[in-house]
């Protein structure tokens, strides 16, 4: 674990544009849960959906509840769309598009994310 921490420390300062930034070991993200990572000053919610074997990343800010909590929501699917339910008031946000299913005026930023060398990486396209 200390290795991983050290690696993060090295990579933390000012990543260049369009770079893949490691945020944690894939093993740190339990199946069907989320974590929040700080990437270039932005809060990014990253999810590991085990049935679809996919990792997703969207903004951590719930615009309806007004708090940085989306990484703590429950994953699921609504009409085949992979979604996270806000832990505050349970609106669903698409993990593919960031769109809110209940209130279309809200659309969250989505981030490119991948698993590389056993690490979860977010692309810094800002």
């Amino acid at each position: 674990m200390s290795e991983a921490v050290m690696r993060q420390r090295r990579q933390q300062p000012a990543p260049a544009r369009d770079q893949w930034v490691s945020v944690c070991r894939a093993a740190d993200l339990a199946p069907d849960t989320g974590v929040c990572a700080l990437v270039n000053g932005e809060q990014v919610a990253i999810f590991n959906e085990s049935r679809s074997r996919s990792v997703y990343a969207i903004s951590n800010y719930d615009p309806i509840g007004g708090a940085n909590v989306l990484s703590r929501g429950i994953l699921g699917s609504i009409d085949d769309e992979v979604v996270v339910a806000s832990p505050l008031y349970k609106q669903h946000f698409s993990l593919l598009t960031g769109a809110c299913l209940e209130q279309a005026e809200h659309r969250l930023k989505i981030y490119p994310v991948r698993i590389h060398d056993g690490e979860i990486q977010v692309q810094t396209v800002f």
Partner: peptide
């Protein structure tokens, strides 16, 4: 069917 959701999972 599907992935489940915030109703059935809890």
């Amino acid at each position: 069917s599907g992935l489940g959701c915030d109703i059935c999972k809890p």
